[in-house]
Amino acid sequence: MEGFLNQLPIGLSIGAVLLLIALGLTFTFGQMGVINMAHGEFIMAGAYTAFLLQDLAGRSAVLVALPVAFVVAGLMGLVLERAAIRHFYGRPLDTLLLTWGVSLVLQQLARDLFGAPNVQVLSPTWLQGAIGPMPYNRLFILALAVGSVVAIWLYMNRSAQGRRMQAVMQNRQLAATSGINTGRVDQRTFFIGSGLAGIAGVALTLIGPVGPTLGTYYIVDAFLVVVAGGLGQLRGAVIAAAALGLLNSYAEFWTNASLAKVIVFAAIIAFLQFRPQGLFVLRSRALT
């Protein structure tokens, strides 16, 4: 019984990890329609940022790394958008292949820079310990996920930039005729989306491996959350991440990890049969 009850907070914490890795994608994939296979490598860049900052900040590197990783991964995203992706807007398959190639290049780059083996990122001493089944580092990730969602919501709904972003997302042509520089908005959206991946990468150093292939472990889950939640829908992503986390937690508790993966995939496929657009649908009168 205790094991059963423990799975509840565990499921929420799995959901928090899912949400964190998917948040950036709700921008780049959800809002801009770019299937960015290199999203996982931006997560990796965030993790390596924490690794590098250890020399300066010691065990508290994780905290210092959060803003730095946001900027580092964000700039990588910006460069990718300016140099390549903007030439492929409206051509999802080409973008998919392009960004997949970029992800392979970035993985090999990490291997050349940091070596093939995983590196060590020490977690802060104040994150060691647990309340019941919830380790402090999991609570930290949960708090970080909640904090990120609140910050994004405020940005999207309370700032002029955020509202312009929503306008472009809902109706690009109309936004452009209203005088919004859509190219500039695209850059900013991609910067923020990629930067959020960097933040996820820092958080993941607390619980997972830090190596060149880190991104590949999370990319599929990230897309699942965005697809199930509905493209570009923040609350959809939040609900989908929590639901998938809980489903994963209990499915694995009653069966095993391999079967749990199957159950989660099957559930998502079944769900998409009823709601192909995901949980929430963006209503727009744009002629696309």
Binding site: I14, F253, A257
Partner: peptide, 11 residues
């Protein structure tokens, strides 16, 4: 390549 071990740890 599995990286989520909280459920297994609980078991």
């Amino acid at each position: 390549g599995h990286t989520e071990y909280s459920t297994l740890t609980n078991k």
